[in-house]
């Protein structure tokens, strides 16, 4: 039992990054923070969210790859990072397919629908269509 496990592991050679590289990343992150604040006040319509998230992903990637050394880590650690990100993606996207598709197929009208309509009329429930129109309003 002198040698162990996965030989592609990161530790065998400890990576030391140069201070100037860390400074470069620091600079890039600060610039991107400024950029995301500035761009939030530009009217890009629906693209505002995309740009904001794109900048956030870029910043996150820089932190993960360089500050957290994943660029220099072994396969297994890259695998764990991939696992975490993809599991999160699964949770977000599969939850969204429910909410995103509620209007695509409507079940046949039932007495419950009539009751629900009554609640809507009396102001206790929101109209099913209301959500879609909010989305459009944001894009002004």
């Amino acid at each position: 039992m002198s040698s162990h496990g996965d030989h592609t592991n990161p530790g065998h050679q400890v990576h030391v990054s140069s201070t100037s590289m860390y400074l470069t990343i620091l600079g890039a992150l600060i610039v991107l923070t400024g950029l995301t604040v500035w761009v939030a006040f530009q009217d890009l319509g629906w693209a505002n969210d995309i740009v904001a998230l794109g900048i956030a992903f870029t910043k996150a990637t820089l932190v993960v790859l360089f500050f957290m050394h994943v660029k220099y880590s072994g396969r297994i650690i890259k695998f764990v990072v991939l696992c975490a990100v993809s599991w999160l993606f699964v949770m977000l996207s599969l939850t969204y397919i429910d909410y995103g598709s509620r209007d695509i197929i409507k079940p046949a009208a039932t007495p419950v629908d009539a009751e629900y309509q009554d609640l809507v009329d009396r102001g206790y429930a929101k109209k099913a269509k209301a959500s879609a129109s909010h989305g459009k309003e944001t894009g002004h």
Partner: peptide
């Protein structure tokens, strides 16, 4: 760094998405 990462997403999602909607109108 992980705590930093969370904030990198929280900042635009929570703070910035009102900026355009209200300034642009």
């Amino acid at each position: 760094h992980f705590v930093d990462l969370v904030w990198i997403f929280l900042f635009p999602l929570l703070y910035l998405l009102g900026g355009n909607a209200l300034a642009g109108g």
